[in-house]
Amino acid sequence: MQYQWDFGFLLQYKGLIGVGVLYTLAFTIGTAVSGLVVGCMIALARLSNMRVATAVVTGVIEIFRCTPVLVQLVWVYYALPILTGIELSPSVAAFITLTLYGASFFGEIIRGGIISVDMGQWDAGRALGMRRHQLMGDVILPQAFRRMVPPLVNQTVLQLKNTSLLSVLAVPDLLYQGQLITSASYRPLETYTMIAVIYFIILFPLTRFAHRLEARMSH
């Protein structure tokens, strides 16, 4: 049987699709920023001499790195409110989960970047009498940042793809809108093809950008 492709009907859902794209992008950018902030704190805690802070943070990171995001999302939305008595809206639960999930990876990238800077650079800055924050800001981070950018971009790409999991909590991201359109139109082939194409259009330039950065760094 020959399937009759017909993408025309999707036009009438452009409002829904627009909302989906907006949610996907907003969650990606929002949790990338919050994840970077939390990730920075994680990296500094792990690099500090405070044993307790290091141990706690390392434990949390491992939990987020070694369980699937989907499980984390469901757990934070359904189980956490029962434990704490605090009701979370799907969007808030999703935001918290993706922030912490992203942060546990961002944190390791940032920490890796910082410790990849030669110990002699710390010696040189200290020998000049630089304070800890000057040393970090003027000597270590500018060198570490160059090495961090490509993996940070790659992690952000993954973060955007992970937002598709928000659909299980009925957050109206791109995939969730696709499911809505499918159940109304009974045309999953066109709908999911279009959803995939939209993800690709957003992500392809980003991965190209990461490649270009990596090539620039390596010479």
Binding site: Q121, D123, A124, A127, G129
Partner: peptide
């Protein structure tokens, strides 16, 4: 440290 100058084996220029 600001009152002493130090030079290292591996230069450690920025």
């Amino acid at each position: 440290r600001a009152r002493t100058g130090m030079v290292f084996q591996t230069f450690n220029l920025f």
